[in-house]
Design a protein around this nucleic acid. Structure first.
Length: 709
RNA sequence: GGCGAGGUAGCUCAGUUGGUUAGAGCACAGGAUUCAUAACCCUGAGGUCCCGGGUUCAAAUCCCGGUCUCGCUACCA
């Protein structure tokens, strides 16, 4: 195996707009931490960086809604998230933040460099400006008609109908979603990163060079993006929250958050170097550095396509691997903080670790289960019952129990000291256990190098299992009863207990990357310093010196009780209901999954209403539109004419069942073409809190074409 | 609809470039034991490898078609 000169490990920057849940933990931070702890035990040169991502439009928008400032939001969540990681044993070398001046400086310089080299393109255009709020409008806060397909609900950055990336100025009839007013045009210049120019590079680098050593889902996702055709992407925005564009012509502009955030890995490395009197440059520039990103699958495109292009242009090294995990579900459903269906790291810490009967052991219990079910190759599922079974059945019964019975017997039969070895009584089983330890270490090392953390952890437990089997065969407690008749009994007991103790020391080393608090506790019981945990010591059978007296046994973990699991399940359900009730009260018209604000729209005058021509119509025919899941093609009788109208209600109604129904039609709506069929008008529908649709219709049948006012 | 990833024991998952009788851990059943947090140890039961075709001496594995789940995307005026 070719050992790199140094490592740089990153874990996805958490967005500092709220608490993070255990799905985030299992997806990126925990595997990264395990890998780093292993590398450090190997005495490799490694830096582990992370930090809060504090820019982007979402944070100032959230601030406005909550009546506070963007700064206040990040200042609230940054320290909480940082502390949560510490409490769970995620040990970054630095947890930085993108609001830090050093980051602004770094990101500015990065941008300047690409700009100076001519790697960015500029495009001056008239962009939309909302006079009501006197700001340029973020792409996603403008809606309008797509120039490509005439879809009227296209966002400023992309049309959802035809899938084209758009610039906001391409939209027809744009409307600010902030004020509801038509924005005016103002001239502005933006910088673009031409992703399309680097397709060949990406094809070679990902689809050839890393087709085999990267995870299937990662390569597959990238292939999908590359084959779909890449487009230039704007890297600046007209906004005042973020890293200022460092050019005179860029006044009032900031770097787009996706451009600025990954540079946060670099500024974090710089800050770490400053704090520790080191040089940061080789970590990002030297080819002998191995860079690995740990992320969730939602981040694949940024870490595999966009950021590598930036790094390449800037002259930095590229990631050796992007270890993206799938998602972790919770009790049968997707985790979602907004729906209340999640377990926040903060909640777990407060309810388990910081309780009277809690402690760091419980942090390790969580780490253990999350690693045991890590979504390395497919989505996995966290269940409280599974947590209980895994902790009680494997961690406590196999691992902790072996340590405990070893300690108890050692104190009972060997006076609390590491017994001597009596070579004349060593047998095949003693040899076998020694070999098993060495083999185990090799296997675990290999698995860790391949990012197979779930399996690696399983192997550690398996080694403890072997310990139990070994002890069972030797039965030192039986020998102890024959002490008077068998003069060799004590020597045999000594040999067995010596082996068990050395095995425990090995277990401490091997479990350390996964369960650092536990390894530390074992060191305390063994009265050894942390240096014993260095990886090279594993496999040895001389870790504890003969005659050394050890501390009395302490339980490493406690069992998880049924009542605790039931309480958590009940809590989860009540969270869900509470959130649902809140949402229903605030936005009675919103469906449960609809996060958009459906409060009242801005006031209009009567003339505005008068522009809408509403008519009663009768559905005379209905059929599904081909190649569209949700569209129904309706023929509607409006008295004077018959119209073709498309409506996105196929999921709710059977075409045959709605023929003959009377409906309300917006008769003077501009025609739209969807899926190749022109729709002339719109059917009014009512939607309840569950997303169910109802026709709006006259209370009694009346003549088609009747007007409504 | 397009793309990506999956479908293997009751549950959670392994199965390397096709190669004997498809594996592990939980859970379950029986036995043994008592040093240990009712833990450990031994034994056992269990599967149409989603379905259907094809290639091959040989398919969980490769190819084609279908189906279901998840994600991205499109579609919901």
């Amino acid at each position: 195996m070719n050992t790199p000169k140094r490592y740089l490990i990153t874990a996805a920057l958490p967005y500092a707009n709220g608490l993070k849940h255990i799905g985030h933990l299992a997806g990126a931070y925990l595997p990264a931490d395990i890998y780093v702890r292993y590398l450090k035990a190997q005495k490799r040169d490694v830096v582990f960086v992370c930090g809060s991502d504090e820019h982007g439009t979402a944070i100032p928008i959230q601030a406005t809604k909550e009546g506070t400032t963007a700064q206040a939001i990040i200042d609230k969540y940054h320290p909480i998230i940082e502390q949560n990681f510490k409490d769970l044993g995620i040990e970054f070398d630095i947890y930085h933040r993108t609001s830090d001046p050093l980051h602004h400086e770094t990101a500015s310089a990065f941008f300047k460099d690409l700009e100076a080299k001519g790697d960015l393109e500029t495009k001056t255009s008239e962009q939309y400006f909302d006079e009501a709020t006197s700001t340029f409008l973020a792409d996603r806060y403008i809606k309008g008609t797509c120039p490509n397909c005439s879809h009227p609900e296209a966002y400023g950055d992309q049309c959802e109908k035809c899938g084209k990336s758009l610039s906001p100025e391409e939209l027809i009839n744009p409307v600010s979603t902030l004020s509801g007013q038509a924005p005016i045009k103002k001239e502005t210049t933006h910088w673009y990163l031409p992703l399309n120019k680097h397709e060949d590079f990406l094809r070679q680098w990902i689809l050839n060079d890393h087709a085999k050593d990267w995870r299937a889902a990662v390569v597959g996702q990238c292939k999908s993006w590359i084959d779909g055709g890449l487009l230039p992407r704007a890297v600046t925005r007209d906004l005042d929250w973020g890293v200022k564009v460092p050019l005179a012509s860029g006044a009032g502009k900031v770097l787009y958050v996706w451009f600025d955030a990954p540079i946060g890995y670099i500024s974090a490395t710089k800050q770490w170097a400053l704090n520790n009197g080191k040089d940061w440059t080789p970590y990002w520039n030297d080819k002998e550095t191995k860079l690995v990103h740990f992320i969730g699958k939602d981040n694949i495109v940024f870490h595999c396509i966009i950021f590598p292009i930036m790094l390449k242009l800037h002259g930095n090294i590229l990631p050796e691997n992007v270890a993206a995990n799938e998602f972790m579900n919770l009790e049968g459903d997707k985790m979602s903080t907004s729906k209340g269906w999640s377990i926040e790291m903060d909640d777990f810490i407060n309810k388990w670790i910081k309780k009277d009967n809690g402690g760091n052991g419980l942090a390790d219990s969580l780490r253990f289960y999350l690693t045991a079910i890590a979504p390395e190759s497919k989505d996995s599922e966290f269940t409280w019952k599974g947590f209980q079974d895994s902790v009680n059945g494997e961690l406590v019964s196999i691992f902790a129990n072996f340590v405990n019975r070893t300690w108890v017997l050692m104190h009972k039969l060997c006076k609390g000291k590491v017994p001597a070895i009596h070579i004349e009584f060593l047998d095949d089983e003693d040899q076998a256990i020694l070999i098993s330890v060495k083999e185990s270490k090799e296997k675990i090392t290999e698995l860790l190098e391949q990012y197979k953390f779930r399996e690696a952890q399983f192997e550690v437990i398996n080694l403890a299992r072997l310990g139990n089997q070994y002890m069972q065969k030797k039965e030192p407690w039986i020998l102890a009863k024959n002490m008077e008749t068998d003069p060799t009994a004590q020597a045999k007991i000594d040999n067995t207990m010596h082996a068990c103790l050395q095995l425990c020391a090995n277990l401490a080393i091997l479990i350390n990357p996964f369960l650092p608090f536990t390894a530390k506790k074992m060191c305390y019981m063994m009265k050894v310093v942390d240096r014993m945990l260095e990886w090279e010591n594993a496999g040895g059978f001389n870790l504890l010196k003969v005659g050394y007296s050890l501390r009395p046994p302490e339980l490493l973990f406690r069992k998880i009780e049924d009542e605790e699991i039931e309480a958590e399940l009940a809590q989860l359900k009540s969270n869900l209901n509470a959130k649902k009730t809140t949402m229903d009260n605030i936005t009675p018209a919103a469906g449960p999954s609809d996060a958009k604000d459906k409060g009242l729209k801005p006031e209009i005058v009567f003339d505005d209403f008068g522009k809408i021509d509403l008519r009663v119509g009768t559905i005379i025919d209905a059929k599904k539109v081909e190649k569209a899941d949700k569209l129904l093609q309706l023929e509607v009788d409006l008295g004077t004419e018959k119209r073709t109208i498309l409506s996105g209600i196929a999921m709710h109604f059977d075409p045959a069942a709605i023929i003959g129904k009377q409906v309300v039609v917006v008769a003077n709506l501009a025609p739209r073409t969807m899926r190749g069929v022109e729709s002339k008008g719109m059917i009014l529908m009512a939607e309840d809190a569950n997303g169910k649709l109802y026709f709006v219709q006259p209370s009694e049948a009346i003549a088609p074409g009747s007007t409504i006012s």
